[in-house]
């Protein structure tokens, strides 16, 4: 189990416990604002864009090619951007802070 902390663009912090599946699935199951996951996690829409806090960037790891190419065309993308549909929940992520990129 891992506690995933989402910080919305409104500045609200929402902590959710997850055990499996992707971060996007966890977020949409509780309705985190700005994190829609329109395509259901197949890396087609970029509506699950998050920024990973520095401490966890290495643990989360680098994006794969297709995800990187998707982010390349997102004007909100930064160095610590990831699509949360491509991050699987694991105990290693316990305590992670993810800032939701969109309002």
């Amino acid at each position: 189990m891992a506690v995933i902390n989402f910080i919305t663009q409104e500045g609200e912090k929402i902590s959710v416990e997850g055990t499996s599946g992707s971060i996007m699935e966890l977020a949409t199951s509780v309705g985190i604002a700005g994190l829609d996951g329109d395509c259901g996690g197949v890396c087609s829409c970029a509506t699950c864009h998050v920024y990973v806090n520095e401490t966890y960037r290495k643990i989360v790891g680098e994006a794969e090619k297709i995800e990187k190419e998707m982010l390349e065309f997102d004007e909100l993308a930064k160095e610590n951007s990831r699509l949360s549909c491509q991050i699987e929940i694991s105990e290693k992520l316990d305590g992670i802070e993810l800032i939701v990129a969109r309002e």
Partner: peptide
């Protein structure tokens, strides 16, 4: 069950389909 599927059937970028949620 294609897992990674960066299709553009609903458009892409700023003008991605406004009605896509309804269509999906």
């Amino acid at each position: 069950d294609r897992k990674v599927n960066p299709h553009v059937a609903f458009g892409f970028s700023h003008h991605k389909c406004l009605g896509a949620t309804h269509a999906r």
